[in-house]
């Protein structure tokens, strides 16, 4: 459990202290709502939207089957479906990009 002392700046003062791994995480940015991603791994059962469609939150873009459930995948913003990255029957990983929505 011993580790090296490093500098930690609090309000302009640099303290010499142990900094456990993972205790200072960098900010990764806010999630990009124009990207529709798989929140769970599974397979694409159906695609209900087409490229060029106008969509809004609440509309169902596609059905993702995971843990024996059909999950309705909806957009986080209103806009136009600019790109569909998957086809019916595809198996997708967690966080895989499924569709892109461009804002009006």
């Amino acid at each position: 459990m011993e580790s090296k002392f490093n500098k930690l700046n609090i309000d302009g003062t640099e303290y010499l202290t142990e900094i456990p791994e993972g205790s200072l995480k960098a900010f990764k940015g806010m999630p990009d709502l124009s990207e529709v991603r798989a929140f769970i791994p599974g397979s694409i059962v159906d695609i209900l939207a087409s490229e060029g469609d106008t969509v809004k939150p609440g509309d169902v873009l596609l059905l993702l089957e995971a843990m024996k459930m059909h999950n309705e995948i909806c957009p986080g913003i209103s806009g136009i479906v600019s790109k569909i990255h998957v086809s019916k029957g595809d198996t997708v990983k967690k966080d895989q990009l499924l569709m892109e929505i461009s804002r009006f």
């Binding site: 930690l8 609090i10 303290y15 202290t17 142990e18 900094i19 456990p20 205790s23």
Partner: peptide, 10 residues
Amino acid sequence: QPRVLAGVLD
């Protein structure tokens, strides 16, 4: 504990 993270609260 000043030894770890200078004893900050988190």
